[in-house]
Nucleic acid binder design. Sequence first.
DNA 1: GATGAATGAGTATTCATTCAT
DNA 2: CATGAATGAATACTCATTCAT
Lengths: 192, 192, 192, 192
Amino acid sequence: MDVALEHFAKGGYYNTPISHIAKHAGISKGLLYNYFRSKEDLLTEIINRSLHDLAGYFDPDRDGRLSEEEFELFIRKLFALLRENPAFWRLFYQLLMQSEVRKLLVNTTMSYMNRGQVPDSNSGNFLLLIPGMISEYFTRKKERKGEDYDPALEGNMFMYTVEGFIMITAYMDEIDEVNYNKSVEGIIKLYK
Amino acid sequence: MDVALEHFAKGGYYNTPISHIAKHAGISKGLLYNYFRSKEDLLTEIINRSLHDLAGYFDPDRDGRLSEEEFELFIRKLFALLRENPAFWRLFYQLLMQSEVRKLLVNTTMSYMNRGQVPDSNSGNFLLLIPGMISEYFTRKKERKGEDYDPALEGNMFMYTVEGFIMITAYMDEIDEVNYNKSVEGIIKLYK
Amino acid sequence: MDVALEHFAKGGYYNTPISHIAKHAGISKGLLYNYFRSKEDLLTEIINRSLHDLAGYFDPDRDGRLSEEEFELFIRKLFALLRENPAFWRLFYQLLMQSEVRKLLVNTTMSYMNRGQVPDSNSGNFLLLIPGMISEYFTRKKERKGEDYDPALEGNMFMYTVEGFIMITAYMDEIDEVNYNKSVEGIIKLYK
Amino acid sequence: MDVALEHFAKGGYYNTPISHIAKHAGISKGLLYNYFRSKEDLLTEIINRSLHDLAGYFDPDRDGRLSEEEFELFIRKLFALLRENPAFWRLFYQLLMQSEVRKLLVNTTMSYMNRGQVPDSNSGNFLLLIPGMISEYFTRKKERKGEDYDPALEGNMFMYTVEGFIMITAYMDEIDEVNYNKSVEGIIKLYK
DNA sequence: GATGAATGAGTATTCATTCAT
DNA sequence: CATGAATGAATACTCATTCAT
């Protein structure tokens, strides 16, 4: 699965032959098909594994609402995962960009991230997959910020920024430590 | 080309057979090959056409630097183009997400957007393709904003936000007018 | 037809698209099809034209037998034609080398060269297409040469040599005048 | 490879679809591509295999010069190979007759036949591929034959004859034993 | 568990030929 | 007479998947 992730992320899922993966993994095609029913099954397993890891980080106390501390923690964890495994994010976005695969992916992801709340499935970004808690967080924040504060706008701006940051960072050949840290702190400062 | 763009954007470039495009365009495969030398040529022509339209909007007075008005105009134009032809942006991002195609695309785009300035080619976002003027804009802005202002960070935050906004908007089934406008004004207000 | 001959000879009949010929001839494909019913028809016309020229040189007095002078003349004419239009010979041999085309070609050629005499059609060389007169010539020559002379062998050796000479000469980038002339005289001296 | 050789020789390399070969060989196209990377690769392997067999027969004692016995042996071996596998020679000549393929073929052959000596590459006959030893043989022969003997002419006449003999024999439907043997002995007697 | 030979449906591309203008 | 847009059958090659061993 690691080898497959790496090659899917680099060459694209449809462009990477199963034989190529088998060869680089040092096994035969036949054996690969003993473990995965199909190429799509292999892909699904890769996605699932990473989403499973991801799911653990959200809403640690499982009360369905993000405190300010949880919000900051959530952002830091998300970005930490990004740095640990950028190949996964490249694959993830690559699939998300293909309209016909996206619905499949969105559904799979939702079963991990969400507990029954169905978001507007038409928007393809990652954070909308866990929209309930996010929008609720910004709604609550209005109390701190006063009348002029527009929670819907702020929530969206936050999502744009995070989405863009993930995408850009995932595709950098190597990450500049200083800029990376400044960006993370900048996002937290602006939207916490 | 319109039919091809539509199908490439929906099903993915590699996943869309040329026969499928020909059929939906109501012509034969052979005729398609009278107009385009190859599938890749068709893709390139589609990209070029849209980039050509795009290129006209940057730096209207051609002095290589963005005034505040030009900056705002640039953002508005960019987002207007996004609404006019979201399919192009879906295709564009789809290709940008595939590491092996990206360099080709980046080079093509650069020849349109840039005048000899070579950006850090490793980051795959759109705005980095016109990086000179953007970073210069934020550097100049420091004079207005004072000592605490970090132009590098602000430039990056701006890029993340725009990138995320384009991506998310391009993939929405239909755009909520109110939210869309609020987002545009929000981005301008925050980063102009 | 000249353009076609040139390209057929260089690139091969099957490898040379009709469009390529039309373009180099400065006409449209459509016009070409006004003059020739098919690609094969074009080929046939080219062959016929050259064979027609060729046919005039054999057996000038039309008595069905070669005198010694006619034999020498025939060789000289044959080799002169070779030098005038080596491209035709390259095309001719090229086609002759393809078993499936050869029968067609052999038949066409025979209708020009021969008057009803059917040679062993299995041997693919040029001279066998006019075998009657040749073999008759060497049979008569036995009278001059005596008991040890084997007309069948001599006729064959003659054919091998001429065939090889044509083939090798037709494919030379440029002909060395001295060697060419020595070869011609050598063949005449040895087999006249 | 045997099936392919047979069909290439009969129908021509460019005219024989790979599917046709696979069908007659009783395997699928896919399997064929497990063994050969491309149609051209299949062709190259066929040529190489036969050239490999051929190469063993030249200059048996590897001293770079042909004795009279070696010369005779060489001719006999060459003609024996011709009878064993005429299809190969038909294919070989067929390719040699196509100007655009010929250089490729000449180079491949030379790496087998030759040890660094580069002949005039423009003439397309087989024997010129091993020209050094041949011309050297006839030069030496002058000592035996006296002042009037022209080694260049004799070498050429020899080549014409052999070339013509191979070509004509390779394309005969069936070989007449008596004529074949007489021709072999005739060539040896005339040029040894 | 492990292999890799074998398959066949699918895909990009070419090209002779037609035909309306 | 002349064009070139249009077609569709043919062809090399790929690759997910199966299965006997």
